[in-house]
Simulated scan of single mutants.
Amino acid sequence: MRGRRSGSLAQDLEEQLSRWAERTGIVVEIWALPGGDAPPRVARAVLATLGEALANVERHSHANVVSIAVTLSDNGLRMTVSDDGVGFSGPATGRGVIAMQDHFADLRGTLTVNGVEGEGTTVTGAASRRGGRF
C-alpha cells in the first residue's frame, strides 16, 4: 500500500470491510473505529494488517462472523480482529502472521495471534505513543 486515499482511517476501514464482506459472504461486525484521523504511516499499517488478517480468515478459518475493533487515542493504537472459525492449537506461523507483526513493529508495537481450536482466532495489535508519536 503505497498511497493513501483522502478519506479518514475509519472511512477507509469501513470501505475495506464492506468490500471484503460482500466478496466473501462472511458477516463483519464493527465494534469500534477511530473517531479521528491517523498519521499516514499508522493508517497504512492498520489497513495492511487488516488486509492480512482478513485474508487469513478467508483462507483458513471457515468463519461465519468476524468482529473488528480499531481505536486510536492519545495513548496509542489498538486493533482486534476476531473470528468464530475453526481456530487452531499451537503457535501461529506463516507469511501472513510475520507480515502483520512487521506492520506493527514498524509502529514500535506488538501483534499477537491466538487461536482456540473449535472456537476461532483473535489477532490483537497494540502500539503506544511515545512523546506523542508512534
Score class of each variant (00 low, 15 high):
R44F: 07
V42I: 14
I98F: 01
G76C: 13
G85I: 01
R5P: 07
R133W: 12
F134C: 06
S67I: 01
A38V: 09
R95V: 00
Q101P: 01
V81L: 11
F104E: 06
S128E: 14
V113L: 12
V116W: 14
R129F: 07
G109F: 11
R95P: 11
V57N: 00
L13Y: 10
D12H: 08
T110V: 12
H103E: 07
A55T: 09
I98W: 00
A126V: 14
G90H: 08
S128L: 10
G109T: 02
V81K: 08
G125M: 03
G3W: 02
R59C: 01
G90E: 12
A92D: 02
V97D: 03
A69M: 05
L50G: 01
G115V: 08
V123Q: 01
H60I: 06
L54V: 12
L13P: 06
S89N: 07
E117A: 15
A63Q: 03
D106H: 08
A10R: 09
S73Q: 12
S6L: 04
G125E: 14
L77M: 12
F88Y: 14
A48S: 12
Q16R: 15
V97Y: 00
I26Y: 06
S82A: 06
G25K: 07
G96Q: 00
V70K: 06
T71R: 04
E14L: 09
A69L: 09
E15Q: 11
D74Q: 13
G90P: 03
F134R: 00
A92P: 00
S8H: 05
A45H: 08
F88R: 06
L50P: 00
G125S: 07
T24H: 06
S61D: 12
L72F: 13
V28M: 10
R5I: 02
T93C: 02
T80F: 02
M79H: 11
E52M: 04
G85S: 01
S128V: 08
N114A: 10
P91D: 11
A10L: 07
E119W: 00
E52T: 09
G3N: 10
D74M: 10
E15D: 15
G120H: 04
S128G: 08
L54K: 03
P34M: 10
R4N: 11
A38H: 09
N114Q: 13
R19Y: 11
R133P: 07
G85T: 01
V57Q: 02
R44M: 13
Q101I: 01
Q11N: 03
T124M: 09
Q11A: 13
N75H: 15
E119R: 14
A126D: 07
T93H: 02
R78F: 09
G90D: 12
